[in-house]
Nucleic acid binder design. Structure first.
Lengths: 142, 142
DNA sequence: CTTTGTGCAAATTCTTTGCACCAAA
DNA sequence: TTTGGTGCAAAGAATTTGCACAAAG
């Protein structure tokens, strides 16, 4: 983590490790709730600080996929995401990276410096499709 | 608008027309501020209600591109968006739709019903790149 | 008259800020 | 001994909810 020019701390390590170990694209609050039992002095502010710092340094990615809250991804290799509008689950989508680069290259406005590209699918996952004929949706809008 | 199974009202028409006339991908508040002078009884609640209703019916698109607030797009033809992290401007990105469809087809998790795909670029637009060597960023995280 | 839309006020929720205290370099 | 991290309490901002009234079918 020093390689990103920021100090290592117990809290930052825990957040980073959590994101690497859990491929669930958690929100700040989910990370807080998961870590709090083992770090009882932990505060939500530190989780927000840490996630912002790590994302600014490019160590993790912040996902704008859910209008309710940000989700975070410890995997910085380019890939897309699927959000289930019924249960809120987020799943990775693998891309053919060269094809994707070809599609996206030179697409940004002239002269713009692109820092990131996100590809987001929304819909109903197979589990919700089958089980939940009458669900209260996590999101009503796509 | 009746074709979407919802009633037409002065307020809904005004929102719909505003989104068709302005390709700036405004937020709820920007729409409210723009319409309020000509509809002095207008409330923000109605703007939110209307945007949610129109988006649920598929008449407009809600864009998850900005973690600070939702933006709305009256253009429902598939295309991507670029957000400038310095000034917050959102611009359309045209795609080669067949290529895009080929890239995205069958990419969602097995059995999932996809309702929408969003492609989002973030970076610094040409204007900010030149003018603002020392800006206070609209977003710090991509 | 029954269903649906509007708009006020209040509530909710996610996230940031100000600040004091601590810890590492 | 200065720079940077943590965490509490409070603030801020976007959006939703409860409810009463109005309007359309």
């Amino acid at each position: 983590m020093e390689s990103y020019g920021i100090r290592v701390s117990l809290q930052r390590l825990a957040v980073m490790e959590y994101l690497i170990a859990h491929k669930t694209h958690p929100s700040a609050d989910e990370i807080f709730s998961a870590l709090y039992p083992s770090i009882p002095t932990l505060s939500r502010t530190t989780i927000y600080n840490t996630l912002n710092t790590l994302a600014e340094q490019g160590a993790i990615r912040a996902l704008d996929i859910d209008p309710r809250q940000l989700h975070y991804d410890g995997d910085t290799v380019p890939h897309g995401h699927f959000l289930c509008m019924s249960c809120g689950m987020i799943e990775d989508i693998a891309f053919d990276v060269p094809k994707f680069e070809e599609l996206t290259r030179n697409r940004a406005p002239k002269g713009a410096a692109v820092r990131s590209v996100q590809v987001t699918y929304k819909g109903i996952c197979s589990r919700c499709n089958i089980e939940n004929n009458d669900y209260r949706p996590y999101l009503t809008t796509d």
